[in-house]
Amino acid sequence: MDYFIHIAILICIYIILAVSLNLIIGFTGQLNIGHAAFYGIGAYAAALLALSGQPFWLGLLAAMFFAGLGGLLISVPCLRLRGDYLAIATLGFGEIIRALMKNWTSLTRGPLGLPGIPSIEIFGITFSQPWQFLIIAALIAVIVVFLIRRMIKAPFGRVLRSIREDEIASQSLGKKIINYKVIAVVIGAMFAGVAGSLYAHYISFIDPTTFTLQETILMLCMVVLGGLGSIRGSIIGAALLIIIPEPLRFLSLPSSAAAALRQMLYAIILILIMLYRPQGLLGERRYTRNSNAVKKKRGVASA
């Protein structure tokens, strides 16, 4: 039973990661390949505060703040430039953050990692049982999805999508596209920080090996599998990519082989999606008049 709860908790964490990444890539069209860095910043911020005896909510806020700050620092210089500078910058940023985690030993203990992160405690109640933790994780995932959905459906989200579609046309209609792009990256990063905080409290041990480029690629796969620009798609993508590799566990392979097999599996899924369903399992929905009531969900490519 605990095994299934464990899977469910991971799904919640990855839903937050995939949906927040989708906000940046799928809705705003800005290629971010350093999402794991924001996740890692959040995890370390929350862990360090928790280890120094601070309450959960403060660690959560710090996780959001520092991850968001990272997003701001990385996006302001490159989003002024046209083209895919952000992709390269976020890739580099991911490596810098990992180098910091490894080498800033006075703060992070480097490769030794941070053990003994306490479980979440809110109003004196400790959520130490897996099922208790699942409630918190699910609740936070629901809140994050709700918030991002609100943004996307509002005129704000419409501007984000217009930037993805055509920056020049968007500018010619008076949109301050740089501001919007920066906001999207910062918000996406903040929510990745939230996921990091959950992860740190849940696993109770973090080290730099968790927040790698491979981790970002996993998140990217989830977003692409579900569909760029589809929130539901990201939820499904996250769940599928957590569940699908699980049977590999029962093959009793050596752990290095299992990891390689997982990576291969992700690559195969990605290639299949690209070939046969480039819009993802769920295409982007059509935002029609009263789309709340009518809810048409046709794939863009099949339209």
């Binding site: 419409r158 999508r161 020049i168 968007s170 008049r289």
Partner: peptide
């Protein structure tokens, strides 16, 4: 230059 994957509305 339109927004191709957005509706006319």
């Amino acid at each position: 230059r339109l927004f191709p994957k957005m509706t006319v509305l």
